[in-house]
Design a protein around this nucleic acid. Structure first.
Lengths: 246, 246
DNA sequence: GTGGGTGGTAGACAAGTGTCTACACGAGCC
DNA sequence: GGCTCGTGTAGACACTTGTCTACCACCCAC
């Protein structure tokens, strides 16, 4: 069969995807409030979406398949914005003309740059969380949820986020002293922490400032610790020990 | 003995609370495999426990109440052992006669002590996880799960663990340079990371060595970063900048 | 206009669910 | 003895659930 693609998108296609959309939205709504995806009933789901129960089968085989669709869509929608956040934060604290001053040239400046960029990114991240709470709730919930399939998918999403983050840090030369493996570990840990803290951020609005500050502090600690240990550990410790004999 | 028309006459002679135990065990079993507590059916639960469905009501009002009982019990069973792990680890690397050498006297020795104790504790922790996987699975799952009640309870449990940890670190003088607030933040973050990583540890047996190493590295990074930033930040950074003009 | 694919509906089915009321039995107390 | 409690059982009720088969409406290509 030769692919005979019509030049214009068919109206049916766009309109037809309505049911799928409605079901996914309904699932997101029910889930965020008080359920996990695997605990949804397809009838309940259809009811919430205003559809016939059987319509579900037209689009999904499983609840798992529904979940996968949602996760996939969310990942696609979150990844780029998060990268943009980091870029914006980095640029706001370090105009291009400063961006190529290396670590060896001026470690203090670079550390400050990284710290400021971090703080800015954390703030923006939590703003983003507050604007898309359901996405994060569902993500974190299913990451440790009942369905192995969804768990695995979300593990991959988290890995992607961490990779993006490591990539950005590298490209923006925020922590040039770290080797790739360490950078990746640090980015993974930060991802985990941020997503976990985002739950507290959503559920405890009165604590938001504190949570944000805590997240910033953690990230800075991790960066600092990694830099000290991997980059200049011996030097630093020896310098620190200075006055006392070993 | 004559068979009464009742099902098991001899079995009923055992003392009370048996049903409660059976139900809690059944819940733990079903949960760990592929469910969340709030997604259990009480009939299914009773079936697994070998009891009549109505027996559930004799002990619990809700599935939430069941969950709370399980969580409470687990917290009680886990807390002390975890503290013991830390003590054992600390003693194994630092015999009592060395325990009162202060940070200012010999920072390198103290940092090494903390590092070794950390590594030992992490190893023991993961051993413990491998021996009680269901407890950790249930805990982490419900921490972000559907029921607000269980979530809140597990948040408290996590806070208790973190407090224990901070307390031990303080008593064992592993990180004497940290103020209480920072110590608490670090302990909280480490708790979160460890519990999260314990899921990977359980589900990916072939990666256990790597996960354990990663956890150790993270903890050391956090300790180091906290120490540098809160204890001797300026000093360290200035020492680091040493050769180059600001 | 005819055929076929796609998205949606209707009705029915067995199976499973939460919960209610009623009953059984041993222990402990008076 | 008789009484009440705590624990566990039995049966039944109305209801919800997942899924199956059959039917309808639209749009597009021929």
């Amino acid at each position: 069969m030769t692919a005979r693609k019509s030049a214009k998108p068919s109206l049916t296609r766009t309109v037809a995807a309505q049911g799928k959309r409605l079901l996914m939205d309904a699932a997101l709504k029910l889930t965020a409030q008080t359920r996990s995806i695997s605990a949804l009933g397809l009838r309940e789901l259809a009811r919430e979406a205003g559809l016939n129960p059987n319509t579900f089968y037209r689009h999904f085989k499983d609840l798992d398949e529904l979940g996968l669709s949602i996760i996939e869509e969310m990942s696609a929608q979150l990844r780029q914005p998060l990268r943009d956040l980091r870029r914006r934060a980095a640029e706001s604290v370090a105009p291009p003309e400063l961006s190529n001053i290396g670590w060896e040239d001026n470690p203090i400046l670079n550390m400050q740059k990284a710290t400021l960029a971090t703080q800015e990114t954390v703030k923006l991240f939590f703003d983003y969380v507050a604007q898309n709470p359901n996405a994060f709730i569902l993500g974190v919930r299913e990451l440790h949820g009942a369905s192995p399939l969804l768990r695995q998918a979300l593990r991959q999403v988290m890995a992607d986020f961490a990779n993006d983050m490591a990539d950005d840090i590298k490209q923006l030369r925020l922590l040039p002293m770290l080797d790739d493996a360490t950078l990746h570990e640090v980015a993974s840990a930060i991802s985990r922490e941020m997503f976990q803290l985002s739950m507290d951020y959503i559920e405890q609005p009165e604590q938001r400032a504190a949570i944000s500050a805590q997240a910033e502090a953690l990230v800075v600690m991790l960066f600092t610790g990694a830099a000290v240990l991997k980059g200049h550990g011996q030097l630093l410790l020896r310098a620190l020990a200075g006055g006392t004999p070993a």
